[in-house]
């Protein structure tokens, strides 16, 4: 979700096999550098594979270029890496959020499982509670939210959405990304 000079990214913590909850502490957001974040939903094994793959690729990028990767560059890396597996894809739908290292402009985008980028100016949703999240975000979000208001908006949107989805929930992680500050908060939420 985009705010004024800030972005937020949030995920729930459930890991399940259909109806059975296997873990209630399985974060789906990964950090790649100071202000580049990747959220992943989908098949859990591919979540790990993909997040590890990008950790490797981003570390190699940092060594080669001697600088951190920018969100836009990272988004294109995600896209091309997923499209490489066009005919045997990773079953994930990623979300990228971050601030441009030069201009500090908020950047968010989403992808399908084969890397088609969806650039958005407001918000990106993904996962089993997509419908609910669209409904919540579309009605709660407004332009130019300050960091604290953005935190409240993204949290209310996520919590209410996952409470109407049997396959999501069990608490949440919320990251608010500002120019020289990243705030991570744990939301408890309903434990059912």
């Amino acid at each position: 979700m985009v705010g004024k000079d800030c972005v937020a990214i949030a995920c729930d913590l459930r890991l399940g096999l259909q109806a059975l909850t296997v873990s209630n502490n399985f974060p789906k957001i990964f950090q790649y550098g100071d202000n580049v974040f990747l959220g992943l939903t989908g098949l859990a094994t591919d979540l790990s594979t993909v997040s590890d793959l990008f950790r490797y690729k981003v570390n190699m990028y940092r060594l080669r270029e001697e600088r951190n990767i920018a969100p836009k560059t990272f988004a294109n890396l995600v896209s091309s890496s997923l499209y490489e597996k066009r005919f045997g894809p990773y079953f994930v739908s990623p979300v990228v959020a971050g601030l441009d290292p030069k201009t500090s402009k908020p950047f968010i985008c989403g992808f399908d499982s084969i890397g088609c980028i969806d650039f958005a100016a407001d918000f990106i949703v993904s996962g089993t509670a997509t419908d609910q999240l669209y409904g919540m975000c579309e009605s709660l979000w407004e332009p130019n939210l300050a960091p604290e208001d953005l935190f409240e908006t993204i949290s209310q949107a996520l919590m209410s959405a996952v409470d109407r989805d049997a396959l999501s929930g069990w608490g949440a992680h919320v990251y608010i990304i500002e120019k020289d500050k990243v705030t991570k908060r744990l939301l408890k939420g309903r434990q059912d």
Partner: peptide
């Protein structure tokens, strides 16, 4: 069709769920 989009919004804004 859009029940799944609207219902969580109602929980939040009518019944003040998660507030």
């Amino acid at each position: 069709a859009a029940a799944s989009l609207i219902m969580p919004f109602l929980d939040n804004q009518v019944n003040f769920k998660n507030q």
